[in-house]
Design a binder for these strands. Structure first.
Lengths: 112, 112
DNA sequence: ACATAATATTGCTTACTAGTAATATTGTCA
DNA sequence: TGACAATATTACTAGTAAGCAATATTATGT
């Protein structure tokens, strides 16, 4: 069997996908879209970012294929295109929680 | 049940973890360490990055708790501290493969 | 056509970081 | 101790991106 290591080009692609999730504002957008599609204005209200920034980040997520866009009259609704991202976030959140717990256990054991 | 949305602080923590995986060089280090621990020199040989950069990235991954460090004489061996990262990478690689396949299918259907 | 609302774009500043060469540190062996 | 090998650190440059204010675009209703 081959070594099955990713080459430079593939590593770059993987990194680019992680990069999309490496920004709090974009993560905030994604978690708000988890339940149902939202218009730009609704996302602006749900987060505490300016409209121009939300619009920019939505464009980035859309260009990368993570979001779908649909116009409804005056509004533009965005929705999750690939729910896989939530699996990613679940894993990461799980790790962070676990880390926090063992950190807490450590502190407790030290203060005995 | 509460909305269960992550707050600003938590989003930042999640983003920071993704950030670690958002660099090709760091991903390359991680995939090389997947099979077994390696010394810095071995990692430098396995990748095509300079020693100073590898050392820097190893430090970043270690500080973040993703890698363990162990000295053996003159050498310093690094190893994966939390195999969860591979689950993340597997998910992402799966998505990229799927995307590539459907892209290929599209091209094929167009060239009929 | 005009006024208005929603969204996108532009130009800009600021902050961050990968990569590098050079140098410092740390450990080994003779 | 001195020479050498492995790794870490430092100081720097260059590229990239978030955030913002202002402006442009696009659609709606009258």
């Amino acid at each position: 069997m081959a070594k099955s290591l990713l080459d430079q080009h593939q590593l770059k692609a993987v990194a680019k996908l992680f990069e999309l999730l490496a920004e709090p504002t974009r993560l905030d957008i994604l978690q708000n879209l988890k339940k149902k599609p939202l218009s730009v204005g609704q996302i602006v209200d749900a987060t505490n970012a300016k409209q121009s920034n939300i619009s920019k980040q939505l464009g980035i997520l859309h260009d990368a294929g993570l979001l779908k866009r649909e116009r409804q009259g005056n509004l533009i609704f965005y929705s999750i295109a690939d729910p896989m991202i939530f699996d990613l976030c679940t894993l990461v959140c799980g790790k962070l929680r676990k880390d926090a717990e063992s950190q807490l256990a450590l502190i407790r054991s030290l203060s005995k």
